[in-house]
Computed example of a mutant assay.
Amino acid sequence: MAVRGPDGVTRRRALVEASRLFAVRGYHGTSTRDIADAVGVRQPSLYRHFDGKAAILAELLDADLLPALARVRSALDAAAPPPVRLHAYLHADVAAILGLPYDVRGLYNDDVLDLPDLAAQAARRAELHALTARLVGQGVASGDLRPADPHFVRHAITGLLLEAVRERGPSPAPDPHPRAQDVADFILRATLADPTRLPDLKTASTALVTHWTTNP
């Protein structure tokens, strides 16, 4: 499922238009001819850039999953208290997905991720979920977070992220940070053993996000 051809305007437009079609029609309801028509090229031109529809979706998914995996690993390894690392990860991750140039509303579908061509992306998503739960679990183990099932908290995080994506709509958020901050604040406020610590934790979280941004 390798991508053929050099990067270019047509290739980038194909990713954007495909993401919009997937959001409106679904993956199975979208054909490569539909994508080519939306881009304004002939179908053979599309195949010069991608092996097929699955290759397009795989790249769209990886545009989110690969950086997200790097972020959660950085959060797990950072030298900061668990709730600071969790807040920083949530802020950075939500801001990143809200700022993607693609319509991300139709990318995550359990039925589609069961397709053999998308096995690598399904595995990356499963790893991302597991590492996020581990990050929550570190806070529970340290006593900074209330006793809770880390996997349940991870599901709540996913639900808030999907709602933020739905609210964003088809285009990138002009400034994704306020809503990203809202999501991170909500999760920490709900899970902190001592919610009065949130203002100080947010200050440390902002410093960590800035560090990640300036030292990718």
Rank of each mutant, 00 (worst) to 15 (best):
A2S: 13
V3I: 12
R4K: 12
P6D: 13
D7P: 08
V9R: 13
L15I: 04
E17N: 04
E17H: 06
R20M: 09
V24Q: 06
G26K: 10
G26D: 07
S31C: 10
T32H: 02
T32C: 11
R33Y: 06
D34G: 01
D34Y: 04
I35V: 15
A36T: 04
A36D: 00
A38Y: 09
G40D: 05
R42M: 08
L46R: 02
R48E: 11
G52N: 14
K53H: 08
A55K: 08
I56Y: 02
L60C: 08
L61C: 15
D64M: 09
D64G: 10
V72K: 06
L76C: 06
A79M: 05
P83Q: 05
R85W: 03
H91E: 05
D93E: 13
A96F: 12
A96P: 02
L100E: 11
L100F: 09
P101T: 09
L107R: 06
L107C: 09
V112W: 03
D117S: 14
A120G: 15
Q121M: 13
L128N: 02
H129A: 15
H129D: 14
T132D: 05
G137Y: 01
Q138G: 01
Q138T: 02
V140K: 00
V140E: 01
S142N: 06
S142L: 02
L145N: 00
P150I: 05
H151A: 14
A156Q: 11
L161R: 14
L162F: 08
L162E: 13
E163S: 14
V165R: 12
E167Y: 15
S171H: 13
A180C: 13
D182F: 15
I187Y: 05
L188H: 00
A190N: 12
R197T: 04
D200S: 06
L201C: 01
A204V: 00
T210N: 15
H211R: 15
T213M: 11
T214M: 10
N215K: 08
N215Y: 08
P216Q: 12
